[in-house]
Write a protein that binds this DNA or RNA. Sequence first.
DNA 1: GCAAAAGTGTTACCCTTACACCCATGT
DNA 2: ACATGGGTGTAAGGGTAACACTTTTGC
Lengths: 231, 231
Amino acid sequence: MTDYDPHAYPPFALTVDLVVLTVRDGELQVLLVRRGVAPYQGRWALPGGFVQIDEDLRAAAVRELREETGLRLDDVHLEQLATYGAPRRDPRMRVVSVAWLVLAPDLPSPVAGTDASDASWRPVDGTLSSGRLAFDHASILSDGVERARAKLEYSSLGASFCDDKFTVGELRAAYEAVWGVELDPRNFHRKVTGTPGFLVETGRTTTRGGGRPAMLYTARDAALNPPLLRG
Amino acid sequence: MTDYDPHAYPPFALTVDLVVLTVRDGELQVLLVRRGVAPYQGRWALPGGFVQIDEDLRAAAVRELREETGLRLDDVHLEQLATYGAPRRDPRMRVVSVAWLVLAPDLPSPVAGTDASDASWRPVDGTLSSGRLAFDHASILSDGVERARAKLEYSSLGASFCDDKFTVGELRAAYEAVWGVELDPRNFHRKVTGTPGFLVETGRTTTRGGGRPAMLYTARDAALNPPLLRG
DNA sequence: GCAAAAGTGTTACCCTTACACCCATGT
DNA sequence: ACATGGGTGTAAGGGTAACACTTTTGC
C-alpha cells in the first residue's frame, strides 16, 4: 500500500451480489430476482445490494441474504467468490461488486420473507444458456457454479445442499444434480461413510423416499463445535 | 442488485494488494515493501496501491506489479485472490482491497525498476511467524500461500516459478520449496512428463546443475495459443 | 410377494510409492 | 575413475469402479 492524499482518492460504490444455489427437482437451481427499474428493467439478476460504509463485507452478504431471500446464516454455507469491477459493468456509475457463493438446502417455504418484488428459483442450465441476466451476472453465476462443482470434489460441502439430517441417498442426489452425472449408489455410500470427519451418524433412520430404512446423518459433529460456553 | 439513490451510496476507497511469490535459495519467498509513512511506518507491507476510477481491477494489479516490482505480465501468473474489507483494516478510512496472487520465477535482476523506496524478497515462513506485517497483510499473505500450495496440486502452475525453459529437476525444486517436502525425483519425473498438456519438450538440453544433460521444457505449447492471426 | 432403496462383498484395474538400476555429462 | 543429477523398470499396496448379492421397509 502506497502513500496517498486522503482528499484525492477516487470513490467507488461497493455492492455484494449473491449466487445462491440449491438442488430442487433433481437439478441445480439459482435464486434470482427480477429487476423493477432501469437499467435491465424486467431482467433477472442476482440478489444483492450496497455495502454500508461501516459494514463488514461478509456482514453485508449476510444481511442481503436475510433481506432478499429470508435465509439465515445457520441454514447455509457462505463463502466469498470473487470481486467484479469492470469500469462499465454498471452503465450508470463505477460499481465494484464482491460476489458471494451460498449453498442452501431445498427449503420448505421457498424464499420466505423476500424483500424483492419478484424472486424465484431458476434452473442454472437454462439461465446460463439463455444469456439474459442483468449486468455481468451471467459471468458471476458461471464462476459460482464452477466453484461449487470444484469444491464438492475435495470437501464435504455437498451436505450444504441437504437438510440438517439427511440420508446418503439424498446426499448422492445433490452430487448428481450439481455434477450432472449418475453415481453408483453402492460405491458412493462406501466412500462418504468411509471418509473420516465427513458424516456423523445420528442413530435415527428414515423411510422417506421408500425402500429399506436409511441411516440419518449430520454433516458435522456438534460436539466438536460446542455453543461456546455452556455454564 | 437493488434500486438505489445515485446521490446516496457510500463511497469506498479501493486498492489492490499483491502477494508476489517466488522460489529463491530453495525456499518460498514473498516480495515486500517497507512503508515510509504512518500508519505502520517502517513496517513491511505487500505492494499495492489505489485503483483509478476508470481502471479495470486486473489492470490496476498489472500496473502496480510493473510500477512496484518491475515485473511484466508476460513473466508471471496473475489471479485474483480475495477481497478484504473489514471496516477498521485501515485506521484512517474505509479502504477495501482486492488482493491478487502472483507467481513469479526467480529473477536475474531482483525487483528491477522498483517504485517503492525499499523492496525485497523475504522468506514466507519467517514473515508469517514474525507477525509484523502492516494492516491485515499477514492474513492476506497467509491466504495467498495457502492458495498457491493448493493450486499446485491440481494444476500446472508450478511452472510459473520457473524460467521460460526449465528442467524437471528445477520444477521439482519449486514444488519442494512451496510444499516444504522432499519428492522422489524418479516418480516426480514420471508424473509430470506423463501428464498430457503439462510439459512440452523443447528438444534442447542443459547441463546447468551438473550431471547428465536434462531435457528443457516449456509450460505450454505455443502452437496451441497462436499469437492471434499470423497471415 | 413384489418393488424400491439401503447397504455389503468381491474382484479387476489404475495410480502411487519405494527403490534397484542404468545413462550421460563435468572434473 | 568418480561424483552428480537425469531418467527407466518393476513390484507392492491402496483406492476406485463395476457389479453380484443381501437387507428391510411399503404396498
